[in-house]
Structure formats: structure tokens, C-alpha cells
Amino acid sequence: MNEILDSFNNDPYRLIAILQSVQEEYRYLPEPVLSYIATNLGLPRARVFGVATFYAHFSLQPKGKYVVRICDGTACHVNRSQSLLDLMDERFKLNDNKPTTDDMLFTLEKVSCLGACGLAPVVVINDRVYGQVNVDKLGAVLDEILEDEERRR
């Protein structure tokens, strides 16, 4: 934590980069950590909270083990990405209001465009990109993950 702050010289101008590094470390931005950052940068806590909630990239809630990012950019939307979102809602009851499963396995994120429109609709699970995804394909990938997790248990 302090290493991150030091590496940015406690510079309040680098707040966003600091938050990015911290999120990489913790996978989300815990409240006390944000308070700590605010103190060190000499910023009001409400300001840091305001910046953290402005950018979609930041999460103040812990994320699941698998972050399923479904692209809902124009090309994906026109190619029925909504059906994939529906699938997540049906299978895991995940939606805008509830992004993470209770067992912390999956987090659903709707993203505006991943810039891979040629492959629409696109789904990214953690860092793996899946192109031309339909309900069956996404279902199969999720099944695979679930089986994998089951085996590990």
C-alpha cells in the first residue's frame, strides 16, 4: 500500500493511477484503503470516493473469482448481446443491481465496447476473450468453469 503511494510520490494528481494500482492489488477498493489514500494525498475523503465512483473501472465491492464482462457495444448489441445478459440473470440472478454471486464465484460486468466489434458479440472472462458468443456457447463456457471448480473442491 505504502509502496504504491510512494511510487507515485503521494501526488494527488496521480489519484486515478494510484487507485488502479491499489485495485490490482486488492481486486477492489476497500473503504478504509480509500480513506488511507485520501489522508496520504491530503484530499477530502469524499473527493476520493467521488473519483472512485465516477469511473466504471473501479469497484468498491469485492469481485468474484471470475469476472464475466459482456460487451454491449453497438455491434454486440445489434448481434443480440442482450440474450447473454439474460442468461446471466436466469442462471445466476446477476444483473446491474446484483453483479456478484453470493459465493463470490462470478461477477457480471456490462461493458460499453471492447473494441472487438468484428467478433460481436464478445465476452471476456477474466482475461480470456470469447468471440461470436451465443447463449449456448456462453453456457458451455460457464459449465466448464463450474465443473472445474467442483473438481477442485
Binding site: 489519484l15 486515478i16 487507485l19 488502479q20 473519483v51 465516477f54 469511473y55 466504471a56
Partner: peptide, 25 residues
Amino acid sequence: VVEGAGAFVCGEETALLASIEGQRG
């Protein structure tokens, strides 16, 4: 290189500058 943090409005130049300065875009 400055990495954005997921806000479309930062494509607007004054918002982009605010974002580089560590503020809400």
C-alpha cells in the same frame, strides 16, 4: 501513457484533462 478508468465522457478533451489530473472526468 496514462490509463483511462472507464468513462466515455473522458473522450471530451476538457474531461480528459481533468481525468489526467486525477479528478472526476
